[in-house]
C-alpha cells in the first residue's frame, strides 16, 4: 500500500487568509481567464474520476448483459438488482458491520489513549519524560505492515483469531497520534492550567474539563484520520480474520475478486465495491475540512 501517513497539525491553525494575492499590474504573470481555468480543471477532475464513474455504470448494468459485452461509461439497461444483491446475498452486510465495529472501537480508543498520553508528555513534569517520548517516537520507525508475523502468533496462541479485539487492538498503538496530541497540548498556554489549579482542580479535572474541550479540533482530526486508516486496513485483517464472517469490508471485497466472479458477476462486484466505500466517501465529504486540516503541515514555523 503506498499511501503515506502525513503529519498532523497541532490545533486549529487558521488557513492563511492572504494566499498568493493578485499581483501588482506590473507583474507579467501568465493568467488564464477564469473560464478557461475552470474548464480545464473540470475536465481534469472528470478524467480523474472516470474510473469511479465507470464503476457506477457497471454497478447499474445487469450481470448477464455484462457477461456478453463490456459496458462503457453509460449503463446498458438500468437495474438496481446488483445493489439489492449486496444486501440480500453474501455477507456484505456482515462485513459492513464488522468494519463499523472495528473502526469505531479503534478510533475511540486511539483518540482517548493518545490524548491522555499527549497531555502527559506535554503538560506533566516527570523525570525520564524526554527519554520516554524518544522511545515513543522511535516506534514510528517500526514498519507496521511488516511486523504481522509475531503479532499473529500472539493472537493465535491465545486463541483470539477471528475476534474483534484482534482486529482493532493493534491499531490503537499509534505513536504518530501521541506525537500529534503532544504537539497540540504543548501549544496550549500554561495559564489555562494554572488558573484551574489555583481554583483547586486536580490534574484529572483539568484534563477532563479544560484540556479535552480545547483539544476537540485536534481530536476530531485524529479521529477522522484513524477512521480512514482503520477502515482501509488490508494486511492485518487478512492475516488475523480468516473466517468469512469476520472479514471487514476491505478484505471481504478483496476475497471476491477471483477469476470466476470476475467473469460472471461484474455488476454485483462493482456494486459491492461502491457500497463498501460509501461510508468513507460520505465521511470525507462531510468532514473534509477536518480531515484536510488534520493532514496539513504542522511545521509552519520554519
Amino acid at each position: 500500500m503506498a499511501t503515506p501517513i502525513p503529519t498532523v497539525t497541532a490545533g486549529d491553525r487558521p488557513a492563511p487568509a492572504a494566499a498568493a494575492p493578485a499581483g501588482p499590474p506590473t507583474r507579467r504573470r501568465i493568467r488564464f481567464r477564469p473560464g478557461v481555468r475552470h474548464g480545464f480543471l473540470l475536465l481534469a477532475a472528470f478524467v480523474w474520476l472516470l474510473p469511479v464513474l465507470w464503476m457506477v455504470s457497471m454497478a447499474l448494468t445487469p450481470n448477464d448483459v455484462q457477461q456478453r459485452e463490456p459496458v462503457g461509461l453509460l449503463p446498458d439497461g438500468l437495474t438496481w438488482s446488483n445493489f439489492a444483491d449486496v444486501f440480500q446475498l453474501g455477507l456484505m452486510l456482515r462485513w459492513f458491520g464488522n468494519s463499523v465495529v472495528v473502526t469505531t472501537a479503534a478510533t475511540v480508543l486511539t483518540v482517548a489513549v493518545c490524548a491522555m498520553a499527549g497531555y502527559a508528555f506535554a503538560k506533566l513534569r516527570f523525570t525520564g519524560r524526554r527519554l520516554l517520548f524518544a522511545v515513543v517516537i522511535a516506534g514510528l520507525m517500526v514498519p507496521r505492515e511488516a511486523m504481522f508475523v509475531p503479532l499473529f502468533l500472539m493472537f493465535s496462541d491465545t486463541g483470539q483469531q477471528n475476534t474483534y479485539q484482534a482486529l482493532f487492538l493493534p491499531r490503537v498503538a499509534f505513536p504518530l497520534g501521541v506525537f500529534i496530541m503532544t504537539q497540540f497540548f504543548s501549544r496550549v498556554p500554561d495559564e489555562y492550567e494554572e488558573a484551574a489549579r489555583v481554583d483547586g482542580a486536580g490534574p484529572l479535572r483539568v484534563f477532563w474539563s479544560i484540556m479535552l474541550p480545547l483539544a476537540r479540533p485536534a481530536m476530531a482530526s485524529l479521529a477522522i484520520f484513524t477512521f480512514v486508516l482503520t477502515w482501509n486496513d488490508y494486511l492485518w485483517p487478512l492475516v488475523i480474520a480468516t473466517e468469512q464472517e469476520m472479514f471487514t469490508v476491505t478484505t471481504g471485497l478483496a476475497s471476491l475478486q477471483s477469476n470466476f466472479a470476475a467473469a460472471t458477476e461484474i455488476g454485483s462486484l462493482m456494486a459491492r465495491g461502491l457500497i463498501g466505500s460509501l461510508p468513507l466517501v460520505v465521511l470525507f465529504l462531510l468532514f473534509q475540512r477536518q480531515l484536510i486540516r488534520g493532514i496539513t503541515l504542522g511545521s509552519g514555523e520554519k
Binding site: 469511479v52 480512514v228 482501509n232 476491505t250 465495491g273 466505500s277
Partner: peptide, 10 residues
C-alpha cells in the same frame, strides 16, 4: 479514502 480492494477492483 477508498479502500485498497475497491481501488484494485476498479
Amino acid at each position: 479514502v477508498l479502500p485498497v480492494s475497491a481501488v484494485t477492483l476498479i
